[in-house]
């Protein structure tokens, strides 16, 4: 049963997946990962994808985020058919529309926190001053303004993940893709990160799709979708 907030969100779909199939060629074998999967994610929703290893949840995440293309089927994000975009245009689309947060942060070790956050803005036409301002805002949102000049090796795991979230936010994308964002963090830090994601969802209107193995992490989302063997099983409403 959806909350009133959830019902309002349903009226406008951010992500529409229709009959998507995805298979990979591994050596001489073709492995089918997703089998005719369909789902809708409304704008402003916070969805957790759960399932056993090999269920296809990361594959689905990659497809929604434009990191990969389906073997067949349609994927619309923000009204745009991303399954029809070529490599270069897909890259441009990602830069404008999606922010990514990974389990192992994936920051550039040679750059400071603020320069890591600034990286996506090098793809824009913003001036250096404008970029600096956007970076400052993003770091402020994640509560790391005082660690801007530190390199990743000088930050804790939680701080690195916050920097990664700031990098994901800095170009103000509508959609955040999170692949096991708390997988490498202790409980307390994980809760802080998930709380931050909730704030981004509820106060900043970001649509978030998160893959997680952790039921407690999934509890921070509005909805939980279960995948098994490349098919959607059920959805549940998380505690508000």
């Amino acid at each position: 049963m959806l909350s009133p907030h959830g019902r309002q969100l349903m009226s406008e779909a951010m992500v529409q997946v229709r009959n998507v199939q995805k298979s990979y060629v591994r050596g001489k074998q073709t492995v089918e990962v997703l089998h005719g999967l369909s789902l809708d994610i409304p704008k402003g929703d916070f969805v957790a994808l759960m399932g056993p290893s090999g269920s296809g949840k990361t594959t689905l995440l990659n497809l929604i985020g434009g990191l990969d293309s389906p073997t067949s089927g349609e994927i619309r994000v923000g009204g745009e058919r991303i399954d029809q975009l070529s490599g270069g245009r897909l890259a441009e689309w990602r830069a404008r529309n999606v922010g990514f947060v990974f389990q192992f942060y994936n920051l550039m070790p040679v750059l400071t926190a603020e320069r890591n956050v600034e990286l996506p803005l090098l793809l824009t036409k913003l001036s250096a001053a404008q970029r600096r301002k956007s970076v400052a805002i993003a770091l402020e949102v994640v509560g790391l303004a005082d660690r801007a000049r530190h390199k990743p090796k000088e930050l804790s795991g939680g701080q690195e993940q916050r920097v990664a979230i700031a990098r994901a936010l800095v170009s103000d994308p509508a959609l955040l893709i999170c692949d096991e964002p708390t997988g490498d963090l202790d409980r307390k830090t994980a809760d802080e990160i998930l709380g931050l994601l909730q704030v981004l969802n509820r106060e900043h209107g970001k649509t978030i799709v998160m893959v997680t193995h952790d039921p407690k992490a999934a509890g921070f989302a509005n909805r939980i979708l279960h995948l098994e063997k490349g098919q959607l099983l059920e959805q549940a409403t998380a505690a508000a």
Partner: peptide, 8 residues
């Protein structure tokens, strides 16, 4: 990651 962020 650079490609993920949108670098072609």
């Amino acid at each position: 990651i650079l490609k993920t962020l949108g670098f072609k």
